[in-house]
Amino acid sequence: MQFGYPENREAASAARVRALEALLIEKGVITGATVDKVLGYFETDMTPLNGAKIVARAWTDPEFAERLVKDTPAAVAELDLPIGMDGAEGEHLQAVANTRGVHNLVICTLCSCFPWPVLGLPPYWYKDPTFRARAAREPRVVLKEIGLDLDPSVELRVWDSSGHSRWFVVPQRPAGTDGMSEEELAALVTTESMIGIAEVPAPAA
């Protein structure tokens, strides 16, 4: 670590961030309140609840489901979600739908692109170098290890996110959900299922 900073790496990183933010504030580039506002937006408005509502709509409205994969930002804009679609990479959202014969998995091998507006911030393991490398190289094995044993007849498609495509998965609607409302369906949808490392389990009978 740099001279003059604590040897403890964690403390050194914290000190660097504090110094950097203070310098940017002093130079008038940014204010602390601006950073707070952006963080608040991420923490309260951009959460997996948005993705879950989109999936539930797709499950109940086949025409919406079709529009969703064709032009994702436009379809998402039809819903009344607290999403600033013009910011936070919302314009790059791309939905892919699972079917009986096709399962989709979203990864980001280079860094950790994630569809923030619909899934919030990524779980820590998504950013892990082991997960990123192995999910690209042997996705079927990785899925099996984490509990999703795909039938060999199911085609597995792996989508590598980038700045221009932020993929998310529309999982299959589970059995035993006939007659459920859109709201009840949304409550079943997990972040994992929208990344494609899990299926949506059928509701407990």
């Binding site: 950097l20 950073v35 707070d36 952006v38 991420f42 911030l121 393991w125 984490i146 972040t191 994992e192």
Partner: peptide, 23 residues
């Protein structure tokens, strides 16, 4: 898996670094 409720940031400096970059 089943990690939906895990905190996104382990420390406040990570949160600030994220916020500054995005802002």
């Amino acid at each position: 898996i089943a990690d939906v409720d895990a905190p996104t940031f382990d420390a406040d400096w990570q949160r600030r670094a994220f916020g500054v970059a995005v802002a």
